[in-house]
Every structure is written in C-alpha cells, then in structure tokens.
Simulated scan of single mutants.
Amino acid sequence: MVTRFLPRFLPIVAFDQFTFHSTMSTAANILPSPPKRATPPTIGTHNGTFHCDEVVACFMLKQLPEYENAEIFRSRDDSALRSKCDIIVDVGGVFDHEKKWYDHHQLTFKDTFSTIHPNICDDFNIRLSSAGLIYCFYGERVIQSILQRERNVQLSESNLKLAFSQIYRNFINELDAIDNGVPMFEGGEPRYKISTHLSARIGKLNPSWQDTKTDSDERFHMAMSVAGKEFVENVLEVACSWIAARDHVRLALEQAKSVHESRQILLLNTFCPWKAHLDILEKEYDVEGVAKLIIFNEGNSWRVAGVPVTPSSFLGRKFLPTPWRGLRDEELCQMAGIEDLIFVHHTGFIGGAKTKEAALAMALKSIEFVEE
C-alpha cells in the first residue's frame, strides 16, 4: 500500500480568476471505457532498474479517479502484464492508445507532443518517453484533478491549454529528452532545457548494484513520491502563478500606448515575473522589439528595468543613461533632474525610484536620451 501524500478530492469552489468549461483534448475524449477487472485496478510497468519517465507516468495516472487506488505491478512478462493490468506503461513493445499500452522503445515509435497535439504546439519535436505519452493523453485531466484537490479551482479551456503546454515545456520535455538520449544541442540553440535534474535524482534512488537486500518496489514508490511532489508543485506554479503573471503582462502590453505614444514603456501595476511572458506575447501581438523599458512596483518603491534582448540575456534593448549609472539618491536626482530617485545600477540595466511618478519620469527621460 502506497502512502498518499496528497489529500483526497475536495468540493469545487468557483473563483473569478478561473472560469471553467468542461473540455478535454480530442485524444482524451476518444478514450475507451476501462476494461472491467477485479478491483483495485492495476498499472503495469517494468521491474528492475526504474527510470524517471515511468515513475512520473505512474504518478500522473494515480491522480485520476479511475486509477487513484491502483496497484503497481512491475514485470517484464508481457503475458502477465496484459492479463493483470488495466494500463501498461514503458514496457511491452507496443503503443496502442485504445488498448492502453504505452511503450515507446520500439523502432517504429516516432510520436512527439506536436504530432499528437498539432493544434496546441508545433515546436515540441522530441520523441516521447512513457512520461510524455501518458501526459499527452491524460495530462489535461491530471492537471484539473490536481487543481481541484489542492486549490479547489478549475481552469478555463484556454488557460488549461496554456498550462498543458507550459508544463510540458518546463517539466515533461526534459524527461522525454533525457530518457531518449536526445542531444541538447544540434546547432546554436538548445533543443530543450534542463530545469529540474529530476531524472538524475530519481536514478539515484535505485538500489546500489551491491545492495541485494533493499526492496526495489519500495524504492520505486519512494521515487513516485519524490517525483510526484515536484510535479504537483509545478502544476500549481504554472496554473496559479504563471498564468496570472501572463495576464498582467498582457494588460501592460495592451495599455502601452497610454503610457507613451511610442509604446516603448510598459507599466506593471503589480509586479510579477515578466520576461518570458513578454517575449511570447510580443510575437502574438506582432510588436517584437518595440518595448524598451518596463516599470514595476517592488515593495515600497518602484523600478525601471531594461527589456532584455532575450529573456535570459544580459543585453538590453535600452538601458538607463550612462551619466546616471552608479549614482544614488541626491547625486542621482541632481544629475537626472528628477526628484525621488534612489539608484541606477552601474550597468544601467535597472534603476529605482520612491514613487511611480518618479519612475515614469526616469523611463521617459531614458527613452529620449541619446548616448554620445
């Protein structure tokens, strides 16, 4: 019996931020009814050394009501797996969605997130592992189940699609790539990013080659708890924070003209992580490279920051004027001709002010300033 570290489902409470329309992907809608077997249901996977992909796949399945009480049967005996299990992952040499067999090791298997969900994203072209396979077909329901249980919220159709894509991008994609041995670089840009190192940490939970006494199944369930906790945290961060931040950045972009005619200054009335969202939304609005500076609140003061060339770049489209750099307080105010300034970083990528008005004046003068 596996000790569940997550509470059971709670009643749904309506939240203004999360309107819901019951929808699922086409793939999810065509799922056949589970075959009737003895209860509880059984999830099958291979025995021996376990890997992050089937660990995460099994955890995701157990977030669904039909599998939440499922037992895990680990074997490489195909006959035993097919006779005992309601669903099989990462073993068996067959991918058949209707039969609920989800192996990816066969040479004929070529599927990626984008081939299964071409209407959601067309740039996820890494071959799926068992984690990616289960996520593609059940991920939207898994996300909603976790959110219902943990926060009593449900996402709207559009926000569910956003969360589904983003969680694949920053969590599952890495697992697919590592399990399939995909090189990170084929040219200048990385094909994927390693942000969790979860695969390596799960691998270390396997018993040592010299350890003949530790129960491998017990370690597998320990690995499910470790991986599952991180997966749930990622779902909550994306659905309850990342999407909300995107909405704030979208509003700032839409209202840019009211701040300055050139649309080069963005105003965030509520601070949130903005760089990655701005990069994506600029493409959506066809205004790439227009925004140069962004103003946001930070505690009891305000900041003016240069928009980076790329979200991770130290190079900016526009930084604060060179004569201001490295100055503070009264000296900075005199040099800039603006009251209530606090500092400008010595590189010019960010500056501080006591009030929104002072920050706006700093941004306006910076836009107009011409470097010698």
Rank of each mutant, 00 (worst) to 15 (best):
I202W: 08
I202M: 08
I202Y: 08
G203E: 00
G203P: 02
G203A: 03
G203D: 01
G203I: 00
K204W: 03
K204S: 05
K204N: 09
K204Y: 06
L205N: 01
L205Q: 04
L205T: 01
L205R: 03
N206K: 04
N206A: 02
N206F: 02
P207T: 00
S208E: 05
W209A: 03
W209G: 06
W209H: 06
W209P: 00
W209D: 04
Q210Y: 07
Q210N: 10
Q210P: 00
D211L: 03
D211H: 02
T212E: 04
T212N: 05
K213V: 04
K213Q: 01
K213I: 01
K213H: 04
T214A: 01
T214E: 01
T214F: 00
T214W: 00
D215F: 07
D215G: 07
D215L: 09
S216E: 14
S216I: 15
S216F: 10
S216Q: 14
S216D: 11
S216H: 10
S216P: 11
S216L: 12
D217F: 09
D217W: 07
E218Y: 13
E218K: 15
E218L: 15
R219T: 03
R219P: 02
R219Y: 02
F220R: 02
F220P: 01
F220H: 02
F220Y: 07
F220Q: 03
H221F: 12
H221W: 12
H221P: 02
H221N: 12
M222Q: 15
M222W: 08
M222Y: 09
A223C: 09
A223E: 08
A223S: 11
M224P: 07
M224N: 09
M224Q: 10
M224S: 07
M224L: 15
S225Q: 14
S225Y: 08
S225C: 11
S225V: 10
S225F: 06
V226H: 13
V226S: 09
V226N: 06
V226I: 14
A227H: 13
A227M: 12
A227G: 15
G228E: 14
G228L: 15
G228F: 13
G228A: 14
G228M: 14
K229A: 14
K229Y: 13
K229Q: 13
E230P: 02
E230R: 08
E230G: 02
E230K: 05
E230M: 13
F231Y: 11
F231R: 06
F231D: 04
F231N: 04
F231E: 02
F231M: 09
V232P: 13
V232L: 14
V232Y: 12
E233Y: 10
E233L: 14
E233D: 15
E233C: 09
E233Q: 15
N234D: 10
N234S: 10
N234P: 01
N234Q: 11
N234V: 06
V235A: 05
V235Q: 04
L236P: 04
L236R: 08
L236E: 05
L236S: 07
L236D: 03
